[in-house]
Amino acid sequence: MSEMILVYEYMSNGPLRDHIYGSNLPHLPWKQRLEICIGAARGLHYLHTGAAQGIIHRDVKTTNILLDENFVAKTHVSTAVKGSFGYLDPEYFRRQQLTEKSDVYSFGVVLFEVICARPAINPALPRDQVNLAEWALQWHRKGMLEKCLADYGVDRPSMGDVLWNLEYSLQLQEASSQIEPPEDKSTKLIPLDGKDSDGSPTAPVDDNSGETVSSPLFSQIGGFQGR
Rank of each mutant, 00 (worst) to 15 (best):
V154T: 11
W139L: 12
L132W: 04
D155W: 13
T212Q: 12
F71C: 01
G39A: 11
L25D: 10
K101C: 03
L34Y: 05
G160H: 03
P29G: 04
S78I: 03
G210K: 09
N24P: 01
R227S: 12
F224I: 14
L111P: 00
G160K: 03
N64V: 08
A120C: 10
N131R: 11
L145P: 01
G194S: 08
P191K: 06
E91S: 00
M4D: 10
W30S: 01
R141G: 06
G14P: 03
P26H: 13
P191W: 01
A117T: 12
V60L: 04
Y21E: 13
D206R: 12
Q138N: 06
T187S: 13
I20S: 06
P201Y: 07
L16F: 02
E167Y: 01
D89A: 02
R118S: 05
D18I: 15
L166W: 03
D206P: 01
T99F: 11
D89S: 04
L111G: 04
L163T: 05
S186M: 07
L67T: 02
Y10T: 00
A41V: 03
T212S: 11
P191Y: 04
Q225H: 13
Q173K: 08
Q178H: 13
V110I: 08
G222R: 07
S214D: 15
G153S: 03
G222C: 06
T62V: 07
I115G: 00
H45N: 15
A73I: 06
I115S: 04
R58N: 11
C37L: 15
P123N: 10
L28K: 04
Q138R: 09
N24F: 09
Q220F: 06
D128S: 11
N64H: 14
E69R: 11
I56P: 02
L137I: 04
Y10N: 09
E3H: 05
R227D: 14
K195F: 11
K147W: 14
S219M: 13
L172M: 14
Q97K: 08
P191R: 10
H48E: 09
S78V: 06
I5G: 00
R17V: 15
L132A: 01
K61T: 02
Y46V: 03
R33H: 08
R156L: 07
D59W: 10
D198Y: 07
E100G: 00
P204C: 07
S200Y: 08
Q138D: 05
R42E: 07
S214C: 13
S177H: 12
T187L: 15
A120R: 06
V114E: 02
K82D: 02
R95Q: 15
S169V: 12
L28D: 03
F224S: 01
H19K: 06
T75W: 05
F107E: 04
I20P: 05
N70D: 12
S78H: 12
L66M: 15
Y105N: 00
D206K: 08
K142R: 15
L28W: 06
R118C: 11
D184T: 12
L66E: 10
T49F: 02
D207W: 11
S186W: 11
K195G: 00
A136I: 04
S23D: 07
Q171E: 15
G153V: 08
Y152T: 06
Y8F: 15
V114Y: 00
H76L: 12
F112A: 05
G199S: 08
S12M: 13
Q173C: 08
E174W: 09
T99V: 03
K74T: 09
D155M: 14
